[in-house]
Simulated scan of single mutants.
Amino acid sequence: MAKALIGYLGGPTSDQLRETAALHRRIADLEAEIMRLKVENDGLLRTIRERVDNVTAGDLMEPAAH
Rank of each mutant, 00 (worst) to 15 (best):
18 R>A: 09
18 R>K: 12
18 R>Y: 01
20 T>R: 13
24 H>D: 10
24 H>M: 08
24 H>V: 02
24 H>A: 14
25 R>L: 02
27 I>N: 14
27 I>T: 14
27 I>Q: 15
28 A>G: 04
28 A>V: 03
29 D>E: 13
29 D>H: 12
29 D>F: 10
30 L>R: 10
30 L>V: 03
31 E>C: 00
34 I>R: 00
34 I>G: 01
35 M>G: 02
36 R>W: 02
36 R>H: 07
37 L>G: 01
37 L>E: 03
38 K>S: 05
38 K>Y: 07
39 V>Y: 11
39 V>A: 12
39 V>E: 14
40 E>P: 02
40 E>K: 01
42 D>Q: 09
44 L>P: 00
45 L>Q: 15
45 L>S: 08
45 L>P: 05
45 L>G: 02
46 R>C: 01
46 R>Q: 09
47 T>A: 12
49 R>K: 10
49 R>P: 00
49 R>A: 07
49 R>D: 09
50 E>K: 11
50 E>L: 09
50 E>T: 05
50 E>G: 04
51 R>H: 13
52 V>K: 14
52 V>Y: 01
52 V>A: 11
52 V>P: 07
52 V>W: 02
53 D>A: 15
53 D>S: 15
54 N>P: 05
54 N>H: 12
55 V>G: 06
56 T>Q: 11
56 T>M: 08
57 A>K: 13
57 A>D: 14
58 G>C: 00
58 G>I: 02
59 D>R: 05
59 D>P: 02
60 L>A: 07
61 M>L: 15
61 M>K: 15
61 M>T: 04
